[in-house]
Design a protein around this nucleic acid. Sequence first.
DNA 1: AGCCTCTTCTTGAATGTTAAACAAAAGCGC
DNA 2: GCGCTTTTGTTTAACATTCAAGAAGAGGCT
Lengths: 170, 170
Amino acid sequence: MVYMNTASAEEPRWLTDEEQRIWRAYMHATTLLEDHLDRQLQRDAGMPHIYYGLLVQLAEAPRRRLRMTELAMNAKITRSRLSHAIARLEKNGWVRREDCPSDKRGQFAVLTEEGHEVLGRTAPGHVAAVRQALFDRLTAEQQKAFGEAMRVIAEGLQPKDAGADLPWLR
Amino acid sequence: MVYMNTASAEEPRWLTDEEQRIWRAYMHATTLLEDHLDRQLQRDAGMPHIYYGLLVQLAEAPRRRLRMTELAMNAKITRSRLSHAIARLEKNGWVRREDCPSDKRGQFAVLTEEGHEVLGRTAPGHVAAVRQALFDRLTAEQQKAFGEAMRVIAEGLQPKDAGADLPWLR
DNA sequence: AGCCTCTTCTTGAATGTTAAACAAAAGCGC
DNA sequence: GCGCTTTTGTTTAACATTCAAGAAGAGGCT
């Protein structure tokens, strides 16, 4: 008779030593980098990295505005977190909310002129920080492999059919 | 005459389109993965990912204990953050503090038996989540390149001579 | 010893995040 | 229209993180 043959009772497939090294390198790199950029932006722009990313998204959107849900999806954060974040950015005068005419529940987050200026002032420093931490250290082949791996991981975690057509996207 | 030739006034080296794609893939992958693991562990182990990582470090250390500073360095977090985290884990009964006999300022964080059991119970699910999100999706070559890139990035951000010999490390 | 500086760790307040619950409107089926 | 479910966005409270400040001991120098 064969015991311990069901999936739930089997010994889990632990990480090999090499997998462990990779996993730890990942944890270290991501923790250190996020921390580094948070500090850089908190110092130079007065906001954490993710808030800065929200402003960037808005700056690139048509009419510098996005629906809350779309912005949350782009940034990969919850609507709740976004609500809080936009409230803070609004208090800073960098974003304002606008009602959506076609959906009375909807809200647009709109980048203000002041917000746009902050972005213009601080973007060079931020790009420099990203370059210094990442692109300046990797060879062209490494960058390619790195990007490919990141795409694969992100796709695997994307909640299913995220990005399915939202009506207000055409 | 040549104008605009000083470093501070030059146009910054913006990211190329391909660099932007890589950078966004990175942001998406790391945000989604950290979120995924946080939820998985919050649900199954009652703590966020980073707290879980602290318990793992302690489990692997001799006598299941580490000095606060060393633990903070291993986990790449500030001592302040660690202080708060250990306070919470202590309240859960998974860690206890112990005075260091040779340095009266020092504290050991010690994994309790209960903490060890939580780890044993929840590690299989966590490893499975990491596998599913990361290792199962990357080829062997991709893993290698990925690991190498992560090591390079982490090394570049490591505050200089971190890991220099602490007296209580032999 | 005394003095100074650095290290270790903690604290408290401000800030940010999460999870669950909720209101309001939209969409769908009848 | 009417009911039911889903979507949108916000709110609250609990929790986590950051930052600046501080207590207490260690280490070095004279």
